[in-house]
């Protein structure tokens, strides 16, 4: 015990200096060379700044809506719903989201609603929706904004982010970027 305690203390202190200190400072220094100095990627339009990776709550009919969030897009308290797949309260909640969506989007087939629009994301801050999730909202937005559906479809296609190298992962839409493009379109 005694033979180990002093080396343990001295070694731990040096490890703290090295890994908590020097390593951190080195990465902080390198982060200065990234866009926005390592403070998170931002996007600016009309003098307003947003974090492009942090999802926002879009609930109004004139915007493409984002996914449900268990924490209402609180970016200082991320969390998922943690509801199990068989939980009756949870399933009732999903049913209610479907009904609300049908009210806001008349003329849409229920089978066309993709699951990501009626389920809460893992972080509560998901910046994306699926491509189908954007397309299913076009009819409503065309009506509210008085823009042709073809034009909106074009916009959605332009904002579609393809899988990595076209090969891996999902196709998706960044809701914030799509809505910014929509605002610019006026």
């Amino acid at each position: 015990m005694k033979t180990n305690i002093f080396p343990a203390i001295r070694l731990t202190l040096f490890c703290a200096l090295f890994f908590s200190g020097i390593y951190t400072v080195a990465i902080l220094g390198i982060a200065k060379f990234t866009p926005n100095n390592g403070k998170g990627q931002i996007i600016t339009q009309n003098g307003k700044t947003y974090y492009s990776n942090i999802g926002q709550s879009f609930t109004q009919d004139k915007y493409f809506n984002s996914r449900p969030s268990a924490v209402n897009y609180n970016a200082a308290g991320s969390a998922g719903s943690n509801k199990g797949p068989s939980n009756p309260t949870y399933l009732a909640e999903v049913q209610a989201r479907i009904d609300t969506f049908m009210v806001h989007n008349p003329g849409i087939n229920k089978a066309d609603i993709p699951s990501d629009l009626v389920t809460a994301s893992g972080s509560g801050l998901d910046p994306n929706i699926s491509v189908e999730g954007a397309k299913v909202q076009i009819k409503r937005i065309a009506k509210v904004r008085n823009i042709s559906e073809e034009k909106l479809l074009e916009l959605v296609d332009k904002q579609t982010e393809k899988p990595l190298f076209g090969l891996m992962g999902t196709s998706k839409i960044n809701v914030l970027k799509l809505n910014l493009a929509l605002e610019n379109n006026k």
């Binding site: 797949p85 399933l91 999903v94 049913q95 993709p114 699951s115 990501d116």
Partner: peptide, 21 residues
């Protein structure tokens, strides 16, 4: 249970998951 509600799950089970993954 969600399939029974008439929803298509092209992306699979999405509760608690992120679209980008």
């Amino acid at each position: 249970a969600i399939e029974k509600m008439g929803i298509t799950q092209n992306m699979g089970s999405m509760e608690g998951k992120e679209v980008r993954f």
